[in-house]
Amino acid sequence: MKLGLYPGCSLEGLENSYLVSLVKSFEALGINLEEIKDWNCCGATAIPSINVEFSYLLVARNLALAENSGLNIVITPCSECYNRLAYVNYKIKNDEAFKNRINNYLKEIGLRYDGNVEVKHPVDFLVKSFGIDKIKQKVKKPINKRVASYYGCLFVRPREISIESAENPRTMDQIVEAIGGKPVNYGFKTKCCGASIIITRSDAALKLIRNILKSCKDNGAELIVTSCPLCHSNLDMQQEIVVKTFNEDIKIPVLYFTQLLGLSLGLNEKDLALDKNLTYEMIKL
C-alpha cells in the first residue's frame, strides 16, 4: 500500500520543522511517504469564507490527484488541511448529488474523483493503523517528562471527521505514553487557540493562547506537544508576546509530537529541526 503525503502550505513555509521531523521519524519507524504531485492549497478557513463552493474544489483537486497516482491513504499532518480534506472527502463519499456536482466542475480541468482515497492524520495513522506496540518496540531513549498533548480544534471536530471524542481525546497521549512520557490531563486539550483569527483579531487570539498555556502549566506539564502547525505557531511563536501581554510566568517549551517521537527513536535534534522552535532554548531533556 502506498502512503501519500499532503504537506500543506504551512509545512512548506514557517513550520517546515514539522515536515522535517515527520518524514524523519516516520522513516525511523519504517514508513515512507510519497508527496502528492503538484498539490495545491487546501483553502484553510480563508477560502471557505470567500467562496464555499470554490473551497470544495480546491480540496477535490488534491483528492483527485492522489487518486490518479494510486494513493489510497493520504497522510495530512496539518490539522487545518486534514479538516478540509477529510470533510470534503466525507461529503463526497456520503452525498451522491454533491459528488456529481463536484465532478462536473473537475471535468473542466480534466480530473475526476471517485472517493477512493482515505484522508488520515499522522496521529490517527500511528495509533489506529500502525500500532502503539510497534512504536514501543522501537523506542531507544524514553522521554521521561510530563507532557501535555494539545490537540486543538480541527483534528477532532466536526464529528464527521473525528476519530475519537472531541471533548477528551486520548490518541496523542497514547503516543506520549508509548515513548515513555507521562500524559498530563488538563481541560484545554481541544479548546481553540485562535489560529484563524491571529491575524485579524490578534487581541482575542492571544487570550486563548494564554488560557491554554496556563492550564498546561497549572497541571504540571513540562512540555507541550502539538499535532498542528497552526497551533504550534500560536503556542510557540506567539508565546513571548503572550507572556509580555499578560505578564505571567507561563513559559513552556512547545514541540511537535513528531519531534518528541523522533527524539525517543534516537534521532538527533538537528535532524528533527528542533532548533527552529522559538522555545527551543527552554527544552531540557
Binding site: 478557513t45 480544534c153 480541527l154 471536530r157 466536526p158 464529528r159 472531541a166 479548546k191 481553540c192 485562535g194 489560529a195 484563524s196 483569527i197 485579524t200 483579531r201 482575542a204 487570539a205 486563548l208
Partner: peptide, 12 residues
C-alpha cells in the same frame, strides 16, 4: 461572523 475562529465547538 468575522470573529468566528472556525473551531467547530458549537457544531460538535
Amino acid at each position: 461572523i468575522w470573529i468566528c475562529a472556525s473551531c467547530y465547538n458549537c457544531t460538535y
